[in-house]
Simulated assay, not measured.
Amino acid sequence: MSGTLKAPKKDAPSRGGVERPVRADARRNVDALLEAAMAVFATSGVDAPVREIADKAGVGVGTLYRHFPQRSDLIVAVVRNEVDACADAASDIAARYEPGEALERWVQRYVDLLATKRGLAAALHSGDPAFKSLPDYFLERMRPVFQGLLDAAARSGDIRPDVDATELLLAIARLCVPDHHGGGAEQARRMVTLLVDGLRHGAPAAPPRPSRGRR
């Protein structure tokens, strides 16, 4: 999964390696490559041909090599990009919905990240040295936003107050691993819904509160 793309290293990768300023056109190329890679990985897995990714991004293979000299560089950048998007979605969801519903909606967003991105979740736990930074990055980005949603739902009386974000993140991740019976994303969503429903057991009764409504 993390084999070399067999091209000379002309520049250090702009994502997944040491960050450095890039020109606007280079930034657009990186963004296009990340978007294309995510789409290709979702349908063909992380071992998909790099030419397919470059073609979908509308750039040459050389451009892909310049930014991501190794396949692992591209995978790391895509994982970080998707983790960032999922973590950043928490504040928007929390602003639009009551705490209990916000928690449910963000958890399903998290399930989408793990259950529908073929091979990306596996990279988090592959043991490959090329991906050794990913588990820590994942927890650093996900844990605080998830704990914030859990704390808000606990204060509102929607869930019990003794839920640990790290434990629940890992539990949900395990439920999103496909089984040998071929269980996929829909099965993962059903199982995670049951898990979240269980958080309501032992929740303290809360006084009625005015609805903020949905925007």
Rank of each mutant, 00 (worst) to 15 (best):
M1C: 01
M1S: 09
M1Y: 00
G3M: 05
G3I: 05
L5S: 11
L5E: 02
K6W: 08
A12S: 11
G17R: 12
V18T: 13
R23K: 09
D25L: 03
A26H: 05
R27T: 01
R28W: 04
V30K: 03
A36Q: 04
A37P: 09
A37Y: 06
A37V: 04
F41Y: 15
S44C: 07
V50I: 14
V50N: 05
R51T: 15
E52L: 11
E52M: 13
A54G: 12
K56D: 14
V59C: 10
V59S: 02
G62Q: 12
G62V: 07
T63S: 12
T63W: 05
L64K: 03
Y65W: 14
H67R: 02
F68A: 04
F68C: 04
P69R: 14
R71I: 04
R71F: 04
S72A: 15
I75D: 03
I75C: 03
I75S: 00
V76R: 09
V76T: 14
V79L: 01
V79Y: 00
R80L: 07
N81E: 11
E82T: 00
V83H: 01
D84Y: 07
A87Y: 05
D88I: 04
A89G: 10
S91E: 15
S91W: 04
D92R: 12
D92T: 15
D92M: 09
I93S: 09
A95H: 11
R96V: 05
Y97P: 03
Y97Q: 13
P99S: 06
P99N: 07
A102Q: 07
E104N: 12
R105S: 07
W106G: 08
V107W: 01
L114W: 09
A115P: 06
A115C: 06
L120F: 04
A121R: 13
A122C: 01
A123Q: 03
L124R: 08
L124V: 08
S126G: 11
P129R: 14
A130F: 03
K132H: 11
E140D: 15
R141A: 13
M142N: 03
M142Y: 07
R143V: 14
R143Q: 14
F146W: 10
Q147H: 12
Q147E: 15
G148C: 08
G148L: 06
L150Y: 05
A152T: 10
D158S: 15
D162N: 15
V163T: 14
V163L: 10
D164G: 10
A165Q: 08
T166V: 15
L168S: 08
A171R: 14
A173D: 11
R174L: 06
G184D: 06
A185Y: 01
A185R: 01
A185D: 07
E186G: 00
E186P: 00
E186S: 10
E186A: 15
R189D: 08
R190N: 05
V192C: 01
T193N: 01
T193L: 00
L195T: 13
V196Y: 01
D197T: 10
G198N: 08
G198W: 05
L199I: 07
H201K: 03
G202A: 08
P204R: 09
A206F: 10
P208C: 08
R209Q: 11
R209S: 14
R212F: 02
